[in-house]
Design a protein around this nucleic acid. Structure first.
Lengths: 263, 263
DNA sequence: CCTCGACCTGCACGTTACGTGATAGCCAAG
DNA sequence: CTTGGCTATCACGTAACGTGCAGGTCGAGG
């Protein structure tokens, strides 16, 4: 059973993955007229038409205008073989373009990663070497885990100065927090610090994430959980004061319940 | 000297290789608004805007609509890192598409070449093996030489049956021509055969080359020249009768002078 | 101070390559 | 004989700019 060598418009557009209207349009502008019309006016495309359409689609994928394609395909002395070779050339060029764009992106990605790790260095500055290495490794290994990737990328988007500033503010904050570890999580001093903490995260995110929405109830609870459940985060917190991780975790939870409860 | 970190519309469009109007358009539709307007109303773009434009251009190269790009780039929680990785993915896909199209083309080219050589076999059927091999090689080696490539490709575009038919007609014709070798090139019998010959080439070309123009004066002279100058063609002609190549060459020249002279 | 050319502004209509109906003819099946 | 699925031809809509046009800005030079 040889393939029936004529197609209706519907069959051809199905075959080629283009819309009916596109074929009608190509007919209108004489880019690809069906070989003949049946008596009822229906378009009847042949195998040759299908081949030509394939050519057209390749040129279209190469961003040629229909006018240009028309000139190419209907040129006097049109030579299929040459045309195919030319298309190959152009495709190769386009491929090269894409590869160049990919290399460009890779460079950007690399530089962002590099910056991230440089800024991680800054972040763990002044912390005993073994611990720092341990935490840093844990942090870097999180790249690839959806949730943390963008957190780390915020570091990557900061300049070194900003990173230093960020660390400084962190040091100051956690030192201050260490001073209130003996107070109840509901104590105004504690809650004031937590409010600062949340505000800090908000402004950090807001500056680097477009249209960032302020931390809500659930997200705060999640931060509270992570503070104690992620071992390295917990250790980093506890570095500033014994039991700081658990304390701030509960304090954040309390804060969220009091201030961010759903309406 | 650090690069001045703001651009006018002209500078940015120069830098990015897009038209002024495109940037104005992106401003209109809020895809990429300049960071600020100067007091005189001039658009002032920052480095960050330039980065964003780069993103836009990549997505545009990937055939995203401006609306889609706008949604992607201005999405809540937009994440540059993720976006870059996504772009890499998409570029990889596009590259794969292009590679697939190239493979497809290569297949077509291969099959055309294969058909050409199959039909060359048919063409040299019934001719002593050494000679046939010699001529065939010469013919195939012409692939790559502009002028001959399309001639051979006409063979490639024929079905086997057509090729056989073609050879048969050739055999008949050259046999007939061998019978008039003793007559003058201007003799009516000879000129009648030449007319048939030219008509044959015309119809052959017309059937496989879109909008082919009939052989003109110069082209005929060229055919005449090739008949004797191309060694293998000459030998192929002479196979049908001694001195046929030179005779038909002169006869074609005469025919052209008589019938196809410029007005 | 004036002018000139290069740059910028907004506005409006033109263009390409289709998309999206609306309306109507063809035709095989129930 | 109607119904559902294909087809046809208008005809208007749209996206992403292109292409002027009339007019403001600005630094350099006469």
């Amino acid at each position: 059973m040889t393939t029936k060598s004529t197609y209706s418009i519907g069959q051809l557009c199905e075959l080629a993955g283009v819309s009916r209207r596109t074929l009608q349009h190509y007919d209108d502008i004489s880019l690809l007229k069906p070989t003949r019309r049946k008596d009822n006016g229906y378009r009847e495309y042949t195998e040759a038409d299908a081949m030509k359409l394939k050519q057209v689609l390749i040129y279209r994928a190469l961003d040629f205008s229909t006018k240009e394609i028309s000139q190419l395909l209907n040129a006097k002395n049109f030579d299929l073989f040459k045309s195919l070779k030319e298309q190959r050339e152009l495709l190769a060029e386009k491929k090269a373009d894409i590869e160049s764009m990919m290399r460009n992106l890779d460079e950007n990605l690399e530089s962002m990663k590099a910056k991230t790790s440089r800024n991680l260095d800054i972040l763990y500055e002044g912390i005993p070497k073994e611990k720092a290495d341990h935490w840093k490794k844990a942090a870097e290994s999180r790249v690839g885990s959806e949730r943390w990737e963008s957190n780390l990328q915020i570091l990557g988007s900061m300049s070194e100065d900003e990173a230093k500033e960020f660390k400084q503010r962190g040091d100051v904050f956690y030192a201050a927090y260490a001073d209130v570890l003996d107070q109840a999580i509901s104590a105004p001093e504690v809650q004031e610090l937590v409010a600062q903490f949340i505000a800090g995260i908000n402004s950090l995110y807001a500056s680097s994430i477009t249209d960032f929405e302020e931390l809500n109830y659930e997200t705060c609870l999640e931060i509270a959980r992570m503070s104690v459940e992620a071992e390295d985060v917990k250790q980093a917190y506890d570095f500033y004061g014994d039991g700081l991780a658990e304390h701030i975790s509960e304090a954040i939870t309390y804060y969220a319940e009091e201030n961010l409860r759903r309406p």
